[in-house]
């Protein structure tokens, strides 16, 4: 199981990109933290989700 934004999900062995494409996130407006580090967009398809990973997906909104 992978813990994503506090919820346990059965997505081990998927790539981060494959997982993100199953969600409503706009990939150009997010940052993904995995086990304490930010995964850059160029690594989404190379990053395989492992059992026990903790992921936090941060969505950016406009305004500043």
């Amino acid at each position: 199981m992978v813990r994503i934004n506090g919820m346990e999900k059965d997505v081990s062995n998927m790539s981060l990109k494959e997982y993100l494409l199953t969600t409503d996130y706009n990939l150009t407006r997010i940052a993904v933290e995995r086990n304490g580090n930010i995964v850059p967009k160029s690594q989404y398809d190379l990053t395989i989700l492992n059992d026990g990973d903790t992921i936090e997906i941060v969505s950016f909104v406009g305004g500043g």
């Binding site: 150009t28 407006r29 997010i30 940052a31 580090n37 930010i38 850059p40 967009k41 160029s42 969505s59 950016f60 909104v61 406009g62 305004g63 500043g64």
Partner: peptide, 18 residues
């Protein structure tokens, strides 16, 4: 980071962290 556009925020975070 004090940009207006969400995409710009996201790009800068990725770059600096990497």
């Amino acid at each position: 980071e004090a940009f207006d556009a969400a995409e710009e925020k996201s790009k800068l975070v990725d770059f600096v962290m990497e």
